Amino acid sequence: MSTVETRNKPGKKRLSVAFLLADHFTLSAFANFVDVLRLAADEADRSRPINCEWTVLSDTMNPVRSSCGVKVQPDTRLRNAADYDYIVVVGGLITEASGLSRENIAFLQSAARSGIPLAGLCTGVFLLHEAGLLDGYRCCVSWFHHDDFLERFDTARPVSDQIFVVDRDRLTCSGGHSAAHLAAWLVEKHIGRVAATKSLSIMIIDEAMTGDKPQPGFRDDLAARDPVVRKALIRMRQNIESPETVEEVASGLNLSRRQLERRFQTDLGLSPSRVELKLRLDTARRMLETSDKTVTRIAHATGFCDSSHLINTFRAELGMTPSDYRRTHSPTSLETQPRAAGVLLPRVEEA
């Protein structure tokens, strides 16, 4: 993985970051990134911009609405922009027609020509690609938006099995907590590991993760070639908690159920219902491997009626219960189970 050249200059803060917020941007990605900078900038939790500084840029200075409705007021006009170490684009809802204004895009393109590293948080990677600023770069896309990205940019090769990617002067991350880890990577590079560790600790994040850490969530081996099947997979993946019927998926794609089933069989050799079940079970398996959530919570998160429904389906499809699977596949399962007289006690199924 390539590194980004440090651009510190005399008289500047050790780390200077400017943000461009898309309409309906993801608030959590922005907040997590900023909070790491804030906590690294000063002693304790005093928040003075001593070691680093940050600002929100705008061409209009109008408040920008996040996807949850909270608005952020920019504080620096584009024409007053300084020489920043990084410019970070925070993406939002990919269904929105407007993301960044023409003025913002022109500003980013000019910054790229000047050699200023650009970062895309969450769906900010979509905006950077649309602006022609990711050609020839590896970029990180959330598994949740992987197929959306391929559908929009069919020649791209996004990375969806890492939490962030640094390729020369482009930095991209999948959103959420990965934004905090990308910010901590920058803080460690420019200010030091102690500052990065301190920021994450105060945010109750155990430790800094490298970019190649796998993204939370499922990955599967379904590589659809048929564009209609790819669109159906997007719908299925995005509705794991409340699965649509095959008829609903087909109707949403302006197809009959029979037409959709034929295309799935031709492309994947499976029926839509089998694929949908596979996606839900893959998600449940990943949650059992990586979390301590109860079977009931996992069942609800993956579209099963209750824990009994998940247990029975798990046993029928995989030949074991969720508890058996967790016991044999969770990295910490043997460490966390209680012991007595040196004997491993049986794990109790928790609903």
Rank of each mutant, 00 (worst) to 15 (best):
R113D: 15
R326I: 05
R79H: 06
A340W: 15
M209I: 04
E335W: 08
R152F: 09
W143V: 14
V36Y: 00
D147Q: 11
D267L: 12
L222Y: 07
H309G: 08
L78R: 05
E151M: 15
F264G: 10
A299D: 03
A112M: 09
I105M: 03
N104M: 11
G136H: 06
V343A: 06
W54Q: 11
I94M: 13
P214D: 05
P331G: 04
T55L: 02
V89W: 01
I311Q: 11
E96M: 12
E289H: 06
T197W: 00
L345M: 12
A196E: 07
V17A: 00
T245A: 01
G92A: 04
A156L: 03
I116F: 01
G11M: 06
R257G: 10
A106M: 09
R7N: 04
D206L: 01
P346G: 12
S251W: 11
I240F: 02
T332L: 02
A44M: 09
Q109W: 02
S101E: 14
E188K: 09
A112I: 03
E276L: 09
A179E: 08
L334G: 11
G69W: 03
C173V: 14
R48C: 14
V34Y: 00
A179Y: 07
I94G: 01
A31C: 05
A341Q: 15
N312H: 09
D306C: 03
L200P: 05
S16I: 05
N254F: 14
C139W: 03
L133Y: 08
N104C: 13
E276Y: 12
T313H: 06
S2L: 00
S256R: 15
H24S: 12
V228Q: 04
R297W: 07
A97R: 12
E43D: 13
A82R: 11
A111H: 02
V34T: 14
S110W: 01
N80Q: 07
H300I: 10
Q73I: 15
R315Q: 13
L268D: 06
S291E: 13
E241M: 11
G124Y: 02
R219H: 11
A29W: 02
M61T: 07
R326P: 02
M203H: 01
D306H: 13
